[in-house]
């Protein structure tokens, strides 16, 4: 496995501190794009999703939206927005594309989390005199948290993958090394960058897996179902978005 040794040598080479894109800067921009895009998408999608889940209104639209979003090619969306908003606004245009791609999974996580709460619990909350806002804030939101975090997890993976593709339009993120590596036929650079991207994706995914576990209110199992239970009785999580 000489190629893998070369790839690892590429990662740890002192040359990575300089050049068109220093490695630390690539990792930093990759993470910054991901965190900012998911955060902006969450600010839009979480309130909307909670409202949909609480009122049940607009549900068909949200389901159709997340289904259709799966068909939209993320690479095409990035290039389209960069071209339409102008190549001088590449950062803003790319971020807009990432945000648009992150919204559907977060929306699905938010409304399915609220929907998965046992109706009797909500009736009980209403029965003891809670207002609708109180029910949403103190009952539905905490109980739906694990599914919401599942949505954030899917969105993050989607964005990490799309930021990689966006290395085609700018000198940022780890994907840039792959695009550049293809042009100059440097396979240790391609493989080295790919290994770092995989590590980044796995670390973020593991972080969310941990968060999902911690977020589960003690003594409550909403959003978690016993294994091998018939599916129709199981509370389904948000549908997984397409890999990209």
């Amino acid at each position: 496995m000489n190629v893998f040794a070369d790839a690892i040598a590429w990662i740890f080479s002192p040359d990575r501190a300089s050049g068109a894109l220093p490695l630390s800067e690539a990792i930093w921009t990759h993470l910054a794009f991901t965190v900012v895009s998911v955060a902006v998408a969450a600010l839009i999608a979480i309130p909307a999703g909670w409202l949909i889940g609480h009122t049940g209104r607009g549900r068909e639209l949200a389901v159709a939206l997340s289904g259709a979003a799966r068909a939209v090619p993320s690479f095409g969306l990035v290039l389209l927005l960069v071209l339409v908003l102008g190549v001088t606004h590449k950062v803003g245009a790319s971020t807009t594309a990432f945000v648009l791609l992150a919204i559907p999974p977060i929306l699905a996580g938010a409304y399915s989390g609220v929907e998965a709460v046992d109706r009797r619990v909500i009736d009980g909350a209403r029965g003891v005199g809670m207002t609708e806002a109180q029910i949403l804030r103190t009952v539905e939101a905490p109980l739906g948290l694990p599914l919401l975090i599942g949505g954030l997890r899917s969105a993050t993976l989607q964005v990490v993958a799309t930021v990689t593709l966006a290395g085609y339009v700018g000198n940022w993120g780890l994907g840039f090394y792959i695009v550049q590596g293809i042009q100059i036929r440097d396979f240790s650079q391609i493989l080295g960058a790919a290994l770092l991207i995989v590590v980044l994706a796995l670390v973020l995914d593991a972080l969310f897996a941990l968060l999902q576990r911690v977020a589960l209110p003690r003594g409550v199992s909403a959003g978690r179902a016993p294994e091998n239970e018939p599916v129709r009785r199981r509370r389904r999580g948000p549908t997984a978005p397409a890999p990209s």
Binding site: V160, I178, I190, V198, A201
Partner: peptide, 17 residues
């Protein structure tokens, strides 16, 4: 689950070797 997590462009690079 692990395979699903790998971004496509990275997977293209991992498969050939």
């Amino acid at each position: 689950g692990l395979l699903y997590t790998i971004p496509s462009l990275a997977l293209f690079a991992l498969l050939p070797p």
